[in-house]
Amino acid sequence: MESGFPVFVVLAVVSILSAIGVVAFKSPVRSALSLVLAFFTLALLYFNLGAQLLGISQIMVYAGAIMVLFLFVIMMLKLGGHDKQPEKTDRRLYVAIPVSIAIAALVLTKFIEPMLHVPVSVIGDEYGTPQAIGPALFTTYVWPFEIASVLLLVGIVGSIMLAKKRF
């Protein structure tokens, strides 16, 4: 096994448990905090993969900006406490979980398991540094980068329009 494997096991267990927490907690605030933990462990997994810049941006964008947005909305909608009535999940529970497990088993056996038998190249640790990403982002991928900036601008304008009293 590779050297990063024990770290991977610990982080994988924590991230799966916190993901289950996001789904299972009744209170939206607890779901949100559990999601913060999931994002942090995913950032550490990115570091374990050698993608340093993306690990940092994961912490800043997801665990920072997006989660603050979620918590603000929970605060403004007064969703903080437990739900008033219990969620009517019974009949959906019996369909959703077997179907999901079936799809997961299909993907695991037909797509992921054959990867064990193919030759795999490992790229060096330096591929995730800003020195490696910056030139690629501003030469090969400069047009997608600009389109992403336009998309974010549209997102800003759209959310301001939605936040106005009358539209």
Binding site: M1, E2, G4, F5, F8, A12, S15, I16, A19, I20, V22, V23, P28, A38, L45, L49, L79, D83, E87, K88, T89, R92, L93, A96, I97, S100, I101, I103, A104, V107, L108, I112, E113, M115, L116, H117, V118, P119, V120, S121, V122
Partner: peptide
């Protein structure tokens, strides 16, 4: 060894995706 690491990461990604999908179907908030 590298293939095993790849499979481990892919399986974790699949597990997180499936848990998220179950949440999308089940939760009403």
């Amino acid at each position: 060894a590298a293939a095993q690491m790849l499979v481990a990461y892919l399986a974790l990604g699949l597990a997180l995706f499936v848990i998220g999908g179950i949440g999308v179907v089940l939760r009403r908030n």
